[in-house]
Amino acid sequence: MSDITREEVARLADLAKIALTSAELDRLAGQLDAIVDAVAVVSGAVDESIPATSHPIELTNVMREDIPEPCLTNEESLAAAPAAEDGFFRVPRLMGETP
């Protein structure tokens, strides 16, 4: 068995920036444990000698010419933003209160 506890799911949810409810933590802990058990076989199927494949068809150094192309206007970029001000995305403050 793997070891995905409720506390581990809470830690992962914090890393993934999703505020899970208590009920979700309970449910996910059980489900993820079963899924990880089923997929853990991969580590026994390979060894040091096998190279990893990150892309099905390897292409290297794909770059386009360094020529300016038309792009979205400031207005278009902000068109779907939940909040915008003076041509910028508006967000809540980044730092919390200092205790």
């Binding site: 995905i4 992962l12 993934a16 996910l28 993820l32 580590s43 390979v46 096998i50 990150s54």
Partner: peptide, 30 residues
């Protein structure tokens, strides 16, 4: 989406990366 994001975060997290994501990429080679 929550399930897969948490699973992916787990597979990519320190200490598990080689066993899960790393091995999966090698299986891909096989």
């Amino acid at each position: 989406v929550k399930r897969r994001v948490i699973l992916g975060t787990y597979a990519l997290s320190a200490g598990y990366y080689d066993a899960y994501y790393g091995s999966a990429q090698k299986v891909r080679t096989l």
